[in-house]
Write a protein that binds this DNA or RNA. Structure first.
Length: 278
DNA sequence: ACGAGGTCCTGCGAGC
DNA sequence: TGCTCGCAGGACCTCG
């Protein structure tokens, strides 16, 4: 499920193929992913539009058009974005949501099996308010421990839920929240405002290192995620806790626990490494 | 301010 | 074999 490292990988793969290119004959196969725009208006805006640049914000792919508007695609669970250099076969077209001809035999395709993903088309003002609602980028140079502490320590929510709150911090989803809390040896259910400065420091380091390592590995493929070139990521073999409930902790050998007690999401942790360290 | 639960959406695996 | 059911879950919503 594309979180920050996965979307970063997609953007790095797509950027060389999309930057400076033009959308020809855009086709929208499913309209229920659209937010705040009709299919008719989206297609009119994309037809013949030149892509100025492609970037990432949190878990969103942002294509800035020469018109100044931004095509913002959030893949969520099962979305994938690719540039194909051959016509799509039947299987490749099956879940296509949006596609466009880029010329030179290349095609851009956003596909999404479950279609929990979203597409926005935002002008400058709408983009400003959109991005302002999202928290700071954890891999930015100026994202320090004090910033993390300030963002997370104003709530009594479980630290794991707070970490995944996109308004507080950008790009962390279920996989990397589990992994970061394990690395920081923190109980995922601890109220965020009760964490000490020292613990927040560990969490800051853990969040940044796990995200950076996952970017290097081109993301985590558990099931659906594919890179911008259609291949799997490699970070799944490096996961310490996510998806490993019942298996031994890599640190102490204790059987890992999975609960759904926090926000009804799968949380896997080692009660020994993470449970008792207050 | 917080938790609980519903909503979107489809594929997949378990159970009968 | 063929059906139903619950689950996967990010972001958003309402309700109490």
């Amino acid at each position: 499920m594309p979180e920050l490292p996965e979307v970063e990988t997609i953007v790095r793969d797509l950027a060389p193929h999309l930057t400076g290119r033009t959308f020809h004959h855009p086709q929208l196969h499913k309209a229920d992913v659209l937010r705040g725009i009709t299919a008719r208006r989206l297609l009119r805006a994309l037809r013949g539009a030149r892509i100025a640049d492609v970037s990432r914000r949190a878990k969103h792919v942002v294509m800035r058009l020469a018109s100044g508007s931004r095509l913002v695609i959030q893949p969520r669970m099962t979305g994938s974005l690719r540039v194909h250099d051959a016509p799509l076969d039947r299987a490749e077209r099956r879940y296509a949501v949006l596609e466009a001809d880029l010329g030179r035999g290349e095609r851009f395709v956003y596909r999404d099996v479950r279609r929990l993903g979203t597409i926005h088309l935002l002008d400058e003002a709408a983009w400003s308010s959109y991005t302002a609602r999202i928290g700071p980028e954890p891999l930015a140079d100026d994202f320090d421990a004090a910033t993390l502490a300030a963002r997370l320590s104003d709530t009594r929510q479980a630290i794991k839920k707070a970490l995944m709150d996109q308004r507080k911090l950008a790009g962390v989803g279920n996989i990397y929240a589990n992994e970061a809390l394990f690395r920081a040896r923190l109980d995922p259910s601890r109220p965020a405002h009760r964490l000490t400065r020292r613990e927040l420091g560990r969490l800051h380091t853990a969040v940044r290192t796990v995200l950076a390592e996952a970017v290097t590995a081109r993301g985590t493929t558990v099931r659906d995620y594919r890179t911008g070139t259609g291949g799997p990521g490699a970070f799944q073999v490096a996961l310490d806790v996510y998806g490993r409930g019942g298996e031994p902790c890599r640190r102490c050998g204790t059987r890992l626990t999975t609960t759904h007690a926090i926000d009804a999401r799968a949380t896997t942790f080692c009660w020994r490494c993470q449970g008792a360290c207050a």
